[in-house]
Design a protein around this nucleic acid. Structure first.
Lengths: 181, 181
DNA sequence: CGGCGCATGTAACTTGTTACATGATTCC
DNA sequence: GGAATCATGTAACAAGTTACATGCGCCG
């Protein structure tokens, strides 16, 4: 069982879904701390099905590219709960921008400023999306037992992205002052 | 050329080094935003050598497990500078703790609090190391043209880890209040 | 009827980790 | 001479991406 398997089980614990829907949700909601590709998702769904942790609901599973909606089974939920209780194994972060910046005395400050501006734009977008999610969730926080937990996740995103943006502004100020020399 | 190749070129641009020393530096200084394993490093050193971007300095390269000290060549420096100027391609973050938290209405709040405490401890360590690096660098900021840039990198680490810790405290407060119910 | 969005799937490839084997050097 | 640390290397595996092929259903 890989991390991908547990992400799938988690999302299926909310409601039955297709692989495509899972991918959409990961891209939208988990964007700032996770990613999955179809190349991981579809094989993982097959193997979870083969392992009896999820089942297919609905009709025509015969056609080759028919829509497949999966539903979590008791066994799947148990596996998910086991994972939730086990300590985190892999926390991976790779920020190419920081590696570049580390060596950027070898290049023009103005070039590096361009890199930081792109970084800043990306995280401004993330922050905007997180603020929207936060606002919406707060208005329906009591509708579902998992909403308060999701708010915590969003809050981490808010804080980290605010830190990124604050840093971007300062780094840009520094690089721009260098560029003028 | 992969990301690993450029990290190696970057470190060799400071001074000649062995693969082992590169690994040590990545583990210590880049810890909070990067990682490399020996399984990547040694083959990468070979291929950079074969490509003529780095050269071996020193004597006995005949023995099988002899120490190999590599030095960057002009071509290597040019390749590195090219990479620095190209836009960032891959920015990857995977925070298992947030994925777990997202689904943690399915488990005991006290269990999840344990996960957050581990996260908190890890980032307290990172922050302590970053604060030390910051202090030391500030005292010798004019000794080397790359020090001001490295300070920027450290500053990003400081801000992000402070955000993580602030979040951890709040998330713990939330989870502990849930646990008592 | 053409394009778009939904949808599934896989093969080739790249990337990264782990475990292991080996050997050199230093210091007690 | 034994332990720790420095040091190199690889093979097997695991994880992840990309590019491509297929096909459905809806809307204009």
């Amino acid at each position: 069982m890989r991390q991908t398997d547990y992400v799938i089980l988690g999302l299926l614990s909310e409601r039955p879904m297709t692989g495509y829907q899972i991918k959409r949700i990961v891209d939208l909601r988990f964007r700032f701390f996770w990613s999955e590709s179809f190349g991981q998702l579809y094989p993982a769904l097959r193997s979870l099905h083969a392992a009896g942790l999820i089942e297919e609901t609905g009709a025509d599973t015969k056609r080759s590219h028919a829509q497949r909606t999966y539903k979590i089974k008791q066994e799947g939920l148990a596996a998910l709960q086991g994972w939730l209780a086990r300590p985190v194994e892999r926390e991976s972060v790779r920020l190419e921008i920081l590696m570049k910046l580390y060596f950027s005395h070898l290049t023009e400050a103005e070039v590096m400023a361009g890199q930081v501006r792109l970084f800043q734009e990306k995280h401004e977008q993330d922050l905007a999306m997180l603020r929207m999610a936060d606002k919406e969730l707060r208005s329906i926080v009591n509708d579902d037992p998992n909403h308060p937990y999701i708010l915590q996740v969003v809050d981490c995103g808010l804080k980290v992205n605010e830190a990124y943006l604050k840093w971007s502004r300062e780094a840009l100020k520094f690089l721009e002052s260098r560029g003028n020399k």
